[in-house]
């Protein structure tokens, strides 16, 4: 496999993305340079793509991912991997708001902290955050797993519909209609297996598994006051 280099600079993003796709189609591993925190880079890439962004990228990087392996050297802006179906995205720094929004499958691995609403409306796959997940993380998620090794900010798993939020470390507060349950040994084994595969094995973690309390599943308007956060 040969290596190709694509430079972003101040070029139109559509042109850059076309060049990325063309280089990947030729079987290259692509390194993207001079990224300048610009938006919409590397969207909708297919299986077998290997792509690395130098520096930081802006919003929606790796969105609609369809099997590509994407790495970002530093930070990402809003909604990295939005609606990703499969593949893997590794962010070495901080991920802005709504990381993995509406994700369907695959793995989003964030080595730093994640901003508010990480995994919002998530429908499948795994989000692994080595740092802390932000305010309202897991908001209205339907399925999938969010795993945070460095704790969670306020309103964690607010209005969780389905899926799971796993937190090692302190949780500032739980959101509405979510509850902490005792995980089964085989569930812990599954989470630890994922972590071991990422070089993060540590049997001593004290897990809090959060799931939906399912009261919102049968919403009655007369109960509306129970859901007002403030």
């Amino acid at each position: 496999m040969s290596e190709a280099i694509v430079t972003v600079g101040d070029r139109p993003i559509r042109e850059v993305n076309k060049e990325i796709k063309a280089a990947l189609a030729e079987g290259n591993t692509v390194t993207v340079r001079d990224t300048r925190s610009r938006h919409n880079l590397g969207v909708g890439l297919p299986e077998g793509s290997h792509l690395k962004f130098e520096g930081s990228v802006g919003y929606y990087c790796g969105g609609l991912n369809n099997g590509a392996h994407i790495e970002v050297e530093r930070n990402v802006g809003w909604s990295v991997g939005e609606a990703m179906a499969s593949g893997e995205i590794l962010v070495n720094g901080y991920a802005g708001m709504s990381a993995g929004a509406a994700m369907l499958g695959g793995l989003l691995h964030i080595r730093g902290d994640a901003g508010p609403r990480c995994g919002v409306a998530m429908k499948g796959g795994d989000i692994l955050v080595e740092g802390k997940i932000g305010y309202l993380s897991g908001f209205m998620a339907h399925a999938g797993r969010i795993i945070a090794l460095g704790g969670a900010a306020g309103a964690c798993a607010d209005s969780l519909w389905g899926g799971e939020v796993w937190v090692a470390g302190p949780i500032e507060s739980l959101g509405v209609d979510s509850k902490v349950v005792e995980p089964e040994p085989e569930e812990i084994a599954s989470v630890e297996e994922l972590l071991a595969g990422r070089g993060l094995a540590d049997g001593s973690r004290d897990w809090q598994k959060i799931v939906s309390a399912q009261r919102l599943w049968h919403f009655e308007s007369r109960d509306a006051s129970a859901w007002l956060m403030i």
Partner: peptide
């Protein structure tokens, strides 16, 4: 947006996100 502050500070810098 981060891409705006990077017009002033080119190259890599420590970014503060007030998120």
């Amino acid at each position: 947006e981060e891409q705006a502050v990077r017009m002033i500070y080119t190259g890599e810098h420590d970014i503060i996100n007030y998120d």
